Amino acid sequence: MELKEIMQQRSFAVVGDTLNEAKTAHEIKEKLLQRGYTVYPVGKELASLNEIPDEIDIIDLCIHPAKGLKLLQENEKDYKCIVLQPGAADETLLAYLKEHQMPYLEGCLLVGMSLYPREET
């Protein structure tokens, strides 16, 4: 899935410190909400992806790769794609994603929101 297609999805799980205004996860969460996306903050607000009560389209990792790997290993929810923010990937995480054929993109949702505003349907 390309960044343009990702930005046309509806629901995002933002994984990271979404409560700290100095963190990228907080900025992504707030900007997604401002643009009308459904956002589920995981890490500081929800402990697990499995706590999300609804379907999710995109998992956005804004955390240390080891923590992201652990959350993905425990995940039981369906999703369309994982976005790895800059600094959220390492060789171990990438190897896990490839081995389990999990769809992912190394990119930035902040860039995606500025380049590809969601089309209303």
Rank of each mutant, 00 (worst) to 15 (best):
A89E: 15
N75S: 14
L94A: 02
E120C: 02
I59M: 07
K67P: 00
S114W: 11
C81T: 14
L105T: 07
K77F: 02
K77S: 06
D90G: 09
Q85A: 06
K80H: 11
Y96I: 09
E119R: 11
P53W: 06
E119T: 13
G87C: 03
C62H: 14
R118F: 02
A66L: 01
T121E: 05
D78Q: 14
T92M: 00
Y96E: 09
E106T: 10
N75M: 04
L71I: 07
K80P: 00
D57G: 08
R118T: 01
L109V: 12
I59Y: 04
M102Q: 15
M113L: 15
I82G: 03
Q85V: 07
L69C: 12
C108V: 14
K67I: 03
E119L: 11
L109H: 04
V111Y: 03
D54S: 15
V111M: 10
G68A: 12
E99P: 00
Q85W: 06
K70D: 12
L61E: 10
E55W: 00
C108G: 13
N50P: 09
L72R: 11
T92V: 06
I58N: 06
H100M: 07
P117C: 12
T121H: 01
Y79C: 02
E51H: 15
L115N: 08
P53R: 10
E76D: 13
M113F: 14
E76K: 15
K70S: 12
H100G: 04
L72T: 08
K77R: 15
Y96L: 10
T121S: 02
Y96K: 12
Y116F: 15
P103Q: 14
Y79P: 04
R118H: 06
C62V: 15
Q73K: 15
C108M: 12
Y116P: 14
K67Y: 08
E76Y: 04
G112P: 13
G68K: 11
E91S: 01
L97S: 11
I52C: 08
E74D: 14
K80V: 06
